[in-house]
Design a protein around this nucleic acid. Sequence first.
DNA 1: CAACTTTCTTAATGATCCGATATTAATTCA
DNA 2: TGAATTAATATCGGATCATTAAGAAAGTTG
Lengths: 226, 226
Amino acid sequence: MEDHELKMEFDELLPLRDVVFNSLRQGILEGELKPGERLMEVHLAKKLGVSRTPIREAIRMLELEGLVTMVPRRGAEVAMISADDMRDVLEVRRSLDSLAVILACERIDEDEKERLKNAESDFEDAIKTKNATLIAQADVKFHDIILAASKNKRLLQMVNNLAERVYRYRLEYVKDEKNHEKLISEHHLIMDNIFSGNREEAKRAIEVHIDNQEKNIIKQLSEEGR
Amino acid sequence: MEDHELKMEFDELLPLRDVVFNSLRQGILEGELKPGERLMEVHLAKKLGVSRTPIREAIRMLELEGLVTMVPRRGAEVAMISADDMRDVLEVRRSLDSLAVILACERIDEDEKERLKNAESDFEDAIKTKNATLIAQADVKFHDIILAASKNKRLLQMVNNLAERVYRYRLEYVKDEKNHEKLISEHHLIMDNIFSGNREEAKRAIEVHIDNQEKNIIKQLSEEGR
DNA sequence: CAACTTTCTTAATGATCCGATATTAATTCA
DNA sequence: TGAATTAATATCGGATCATTAAGAAAGTTG
């Protein structure tokens, strides 16, 4: 078993379980910990320099997030994602993102409009750098502002949870330069329709946006399908 | 502090944390453990006859489910539900239930159609008994079949999680005999539109169904609002 | 001789118990 | 009456014991 570089940020005030949780979560999302890989308590405890208790509690949380699965009497492993699972996730995400956009049309305030404009231009700048991580970050920021504008905290939480699962594949998607122009025009269309309060068009725009991602992700999954 | 009657079912094969989790979850949903009430580890451990570790792990799970909130260095307490939270929950639930019905229109099979018909007539029977718990159970069953017919496991999981939070209030809603006839006709309308594959009408029907619940729940919340 | 079975060892989780630390509440003194 | 100190209480994190499953090695059988 190779050794991984799990970084621990010691936020003095945060309980250890949350530090461990964030560390493992990041490791899984960035692909450092690969699907199917076992997460052994003693091993992780030694590596992160804490006892087993916070490790176990973090694993319980990751389990409910769906990022790890428990095998009884064997322990935790990074969750596998089947094409079926991914289809389910994207189907729900499409619906919730539509809802977010519709609500944002009605509830967005001037400050958020300004921030959304900035996020959009930051996104275009990121595209120019052709740095996938940077682009993905700017993309997340853009969508987060829309979610915040929906003024629905639970919706925000649920969409973020779904987005986690797609993160690694979206990274590949935004890496491909063929998609860059399309991404920019889609973001523009979404933003403009939110600004003009055109709910139906905004909804359609975000659905196209998600559908395009979905096509690509399904393709990726079938290609790596062993 | 009064003593509660938390029942533990010792399912030999289930890990203790899951037994504790289910026990506490049920206690919260049925209103035995009231919002704001503190959940103290040693106390619960003694009461349930287990050590503190499974209690702690169960609390971590309940925290992520949103049923309890953690106060740093003070411990866990049953989550309060504000009217704003409830509005958020119902807004999302409306959207996801719409999705479930739309998908069910396309994907329902003959077996499920049969089961849905039976569930619907069981529901009418339950209404006749005027037993709120029985009615609520039959109602859950009806909606569960639709969710299963959507063939989307994540959607099923997420809607069930949202439904948890509404459970106590829905109980009050179905208890009121004024709503009985309306409930039956709404269920009928939903079912008929699914059978005929009429997506738009089915969607509208379920949305009306949820909206009616929402009105009542918001009213309940404002009445008990102290 | 090979393949299958059985047993034994190892290693990891599941659960209990314990020590340290921080917060809250009560009591005492100014 | 108010502030400060102390005592009680509960979480946070760690160490230990028990249970179980997987893997290796040895023995048996076809």
